[in-house]
Design a protein around this nucleic acid. Structure first.
Lengths: 333, 333
DNA sequence: GTGAAAGCGCTAACAG
DNA sequence: CTGTTAGCGCTTTCAC
């Protein structure tokens, strides 16, 4: 690879001038600039970004730390981040943690070592990892899950409100015993969505029955198992609110296997849309999250934070939207 | 951030010794090593990877250049790449080209500038971009689409064979007029899958009717439009082979909108599985590709190529698997 | 407007 | 086994 010195020699100028031309800085005599550009072309010169990064002590990479890119929620979110990053001249390094705090820690270390320009993280572990970044003054945006004890920019959806709408919709459709499968205890989104479910029941004068509340793992299997357990109850539920997309899929699979007709004998609403929720028969009612926008907003926030490190942190809460389809429409007798 | 000199001073050794301890190179007196480790801990020292990369003139980043991470085919593939990368100590930079050769070119430039350790690319453009990488001696693995004129490691699936199996299955299910919606003319996978379709028809004594062959854009909309056009024919087809996942979705949507029962009046087989193909009613018959393995194999190949740059390039072809579900099961009269 | 020169933080010869 | 030293390739003062 040709270096800046090779170009300088060929154009008969100093490396400093080449640098100025390459970066469009300062004024350079047009004739010289032309010579430099010729030399660059002839040598197929590409500035070495690693050297530049070292010298400037900053990079153009963001780390995006999420649990699993295979989950369509994150797929779309990451796409939003990447588009936003590209607009601001950054690239995105993808980090899947599989909800493993140790892996998360490694990626945080890597982000620190690589002098990443910023980090967007949906935290799996405690606030300590986010704090490590913040302490090192690395710009951070927390996404999807709020982190107590960390004072950083955050982008969320209104989980409680979404769950409230979903549950209310089931009540108003005439379902009587509405179950909820939420995520692991202690996970922010699981807690908030459960809270929305409870609030909806209470406000409609239906005390929440604890045997109808289950904790799953936010994966297909957890949804399947929870649904199976609910079907084993003496007093079966007649509707389910599942608090994420994969558990909704698992629950529906269980219902198909058990030959329980949806929505007639079991109404179903999921949190978070599925890419082909409308193709599934019956099509699935879901609380749609603005996943792409979540990513875009996080990217915008990170760009701002980088430009203005001292700005006080803010939290952005985006609205969800209840997407009513067939799985929650109880036929009136 | 503490530098290696800060640690050296605190541990009263030379920076070289700190470097040796940090990298586990050479033998260092245990007592010294202990002092160094203490100092590193006390100063919360993290080696600056940018400086290291410059000095070693190599990095631990791979660029993964694909058209769109939102397409579940790439989602899973990227996940495979990332897992493979992590095992070998690399991280993955995600690059979405949206099939735009210009964007692809920019990402290739970036990969060059950032001195990426390697590139995995599903090429949208001509071979020139791949050749730029190869010329700069950057290890490259081409994935999913073979590139004529580029002499590089390649990981493919047997597209023709998959299409052949899909079409044969439709023929054997009793469908008579089998249409094909393939991708853009000139795209490798589109061409190969079309060829498999044609071969299956010919081998079963059914000359391929050209009006039943359509070119789409590999997106939902293209599938919808192609299906709509096929439905407008005087002699309608009674089955469809769609050559990618999104076009299959689009075609099914069109069939739903047109109230054409599947599989009774229209058999459907798609190429490339959908995450919830089994939940769609009727469940979709598809040619499943080993997407995750594709990514894993590409990662393995890239790791080998990095270790052994002079090894002659090889092409790996993975098998597809026909996943027979309900959408292609014609009820016998 | 241009060039000389000093590093960014680290590693790897090379001496000792 | 340890320290000294010379860069990796670039940018950015600081003189001129």
């Amino acid at each position: 690879m040709a270096t800046i010195y090779d170009v300088a020699r060929r154009a008969e100028v100093s490396p400093a001038t080449v640098s100025r031309v390459a970066n469009g800085h300062a004024n350079v005599d047009p004739a010289l600039a032309e010579r430099v550009r010729d030399a660059m072309r002839e040598l197929a010169y590409r500035p070495n970004a690693v050297a530049r990064n070292l010298r400037r002590s900053r990079t153009t990479l963001w780390a995006v730390i999420i649990s699993d890119i295979s989950n369509p929620f994150y797929t779309s979110l990451v796409r939003g981040v990447e588009d936003g990053a590209q607009r601001s001249g950054y690239s995105v390094v993808l980090c899947n943690t599989d909800e493993d705090p140790a892996k998360e820690g490694q990626y945080v270390d890597a982000a620190l070592a690589e002098q990443m320009a910023g980090v967007i993280i949906s935290p799996a572990g405690k606030a300590q990892h986010v704090n490590r970044l913040a302490d090192a003054r690395v710009p951070v945006v927390v996404i999807d899950r709020q982190q107590g004890g960390a004072h950083v920019d955050t982008v969320l959806v209104d989980n409680e409100q979404g769950a409230y709408l979903a549950t209310t919709h089931l009540i108003e459709s005439g379902y009587r015993r509405i179950a909820c499968v939420t995520g692991p205890a202690g996970v922010f989104t699981a807690t908030r969505r459960l809270r929305g479910y409870r609030r909806a029941l209470e406000e409609h004068g239906r005390p929440c029955e604890e045997e109808l509340v289950r904790h799953g793992d936010f994966r297909e299997e957890g949804g399947y198992r929870a649904m199976a357990a609910l079907l084993g109850l003496r007093l079966r539920p007649d509707a389910l609110f599942a608090t994420n997309n994969l558990m909704t899929v698992g629950a529906v699979e269980c219902l198909v296997d058990s030959r329980i007709p949806v929505p007639d004998e079991m109404g179903v609403v999921g949190f978070d849309d599925l890419p082909w929720a409308h193709l599934v028969r019956p099509s699935l009612t879901t609380v749609a999250q603005p996943t792409y926008e979540l990513g875009r907003e996080a990217a915008a926030l990170l760009t701002q934070r980088i430009a203005e490190p001292e700005r006080p942190p803010m939290t952005l809460t985006l609205e969800t939207k209840l997407q009513i389809r067939d799985s929650s429409l109880r036929p009136r007798p």
